[in-house]
Design a protein around this nucleic acid. Structure first.
Length: 445
DNA sequence: CAGAACGCGGATATGCACTC
DNA sequence: GAGTGCATATCCGCGTTCTG
């Protein structure tokens, strides 16, 4: 009996509830609950002292044909115990795992319940409730130890975020300023969603979180975009990990959200690593960001790509991106920029120095946009910021505090780049990345 | 104290999935 | 297939804080 994996219907909360309701009054007729409990006991006994093989994998080894009183045997059809108009069969895969299949005649999709699913239905519990129930009823070493470890890990992480501890990693402290609380709450959220070992990626708990939910329940006064940017910073630093490897069981949780919203949307899945293992790396990355004067709200995909390379970029931005594309620059602005570039070029060649204030006077750009473009011009014309000399002050009538741009002194060997003027655009690779942009800017007619 | 840097939130772009 | 709603990423500019 071959089945197409793509047509498996996931056990969503609503389907589970329906199944529970349908089978509730006759569950003892349809299933041998004593067999279940004794099988569970056997697993527990077998696992005394060892904690390697995950419980949920062992659950699947239990013979469902014995559990189901209605099944006539392996790979033989019978009337579905949960839904009318469906027929069922129990099969075993090459790993020896059993599943309870259910399908409408001539239908396409089918259910493929493992014992865990069946228990959710028969005991009327969500997956999380069932895990908790199993933990309490059956002291399964591996699992409770794991849960405890996860809890301890988060506790430790939280201590590492204390102001004193953060002093040890000054760059991290700096880049995280204002965001520590966000990360703390994120950890708290993660702790609440430790689901059990079978919902892990092998080592860490995987949980899902919508930033919308996070905002509403933890930071109602902050904006979605701010929180999103903080979360992205944490991911860039490696303090949290986004993952696309989601345990199937977790989909149930995600579907709960979907069911509530009656929509099918993306949700992000996260892993929290042990900070003591990743702080060193995080500090290195934080240093890079601090040196390049990039704070959390300036992080973009482009930045991450140029600063940390493709590997980090791909690790952080794993979701399909729906990011806003750059607006078609209004002609005035584009003209303005071209004009500014020309003005800059002329002033620089004629006087050897350009006043920022004078240039701003020529600009129709907003203050912020101008400031950004000024930085760009500095880089493009290999200039650095300086103050006017006395001669220039008298000659051009400039204030002694005024900001001017002048070419960086020629002695390449001895030139020390000042950190505060270093920008991502300094990297050779950066220019190549956005070749289009730069060529466009160069077109001065 | 002026100017730079930062913090923040609103606006906007995009894609997906569902509905009608 | 147009319309709707949601989630996410990015752009943009205002107000505040920091700094020389």
């Amino acid at each position: 009996m071959s089945v197409n994996v793509e047509s498996i219907i996931r056990l969503t909360p609503s389907i589970r509830k329906k199944a529970t309701a349908n089978v509730w009054t006759r569950k003892d007729e349809a299933f041998d609950m004593d067999f279940l409990y004794s099988s569970l006991n056997q697993i527990i006994e077998r696992n005394e002292g060892s904690n390697d093989s995950p419980l949920f994998e062992q659950l699947r080894q239990i013979d469902l044909t014995q559990f189901s009183k209605e099944s006539p045997g392996l790979n033989r059809f019978f009337t579905c115990s949960f839904f009318a108009k469906r027929y069922a069969w129990i099969s075993q895969n090459e790993k020896g795992e059993y599943r309870y299949f259910s399908k409408i005649k001539d239908g396409y999709g089918f259910y493929a319940f493992d014992l865990f699913d069946l228990m959710c239905i028969l005991l009327n519990k969500t997956s999380r409730e069932l895990i908790r129930y199993l933990e309490e009823s059956y002291p399964y070493n591996g699992m409770s130890q794991w849960s405890m470890k996860e809890n301890e890990k988060i506790e430790e992480n939280l201590t590492m975020l204390s102001p004193q501890k953060l002093m040890d990693t000054p760059n991290l402290q700096r880049i995280m300023r204002g965001g520590v609380e966000v990360l703390q709450q994120f950890l708290q959220y993660g702790r609440k969603h430790i689901n059990g070992k079978h919902l892990s990626n092998g080592e860490h708990a995987v949980f899902f979180m919508s930033t919308q939910y996070f905002k509403e329940h933890y930071f109602p006064l902050k904006s979605l975009s701010t929180l999103n940017q903080w979360v992205n910073l944490f991911a860039v630093l490696g303090l949290i990990e986004k993952t696309s490897q989601v345990p199937v069981e977790l989909q149930v949780e995600a579907e709960k959200q979907q069911a509530l919203k009656k929509k099918h949307n993306h949700v992000s899945f996260y892993i929290i690593p042990a900070f003591k293992k990743v702080f060193h790396q995080a500090e290195i990355r934080a240093k890079e960001l601090v040196e390049q004067r990039i704070s959390y709200h300036q992080l973009t995909k482009k930045m991450v790509l140029s600063v940390f390379g493709k590997a980090v970029h791909d690790h952080v931005y794993i979701q399909k991106t729906h990011g806003r594309k750059s607006k078609q620059s209004p002609k005035t602005s584009r003209f303005s920029m071209e004009w500014l570039d020309m003005y800059f070029t002329i002033q620089l060649s004629e006087r050897g120095v350009v006043s920022k204030r004078d240039l701003e006077g020529e600009s129709t750009l907003s203050k912020t946009a101008f400031s950004r473009y000024w930085t760009e011009l500095l880089v493009r014309h290999h200039c650095e910021v300086d103050t006017p000399t006395e001669k220039e002050r008298t000659r051009f009538g400039w204030n002694y505090r005024q900001v001017v741009a002048r070419p960086i002194s020629v002695q390449v060997e001895s030139t020390v780049w000042k950190d505060e003027t270093r920008l991502p655009w300094d990297d050779e690779s950066f220019g190549r990345l956005f070749a289009d942009d730069s060529t466009e800017c160069m077109q001065v007619s």
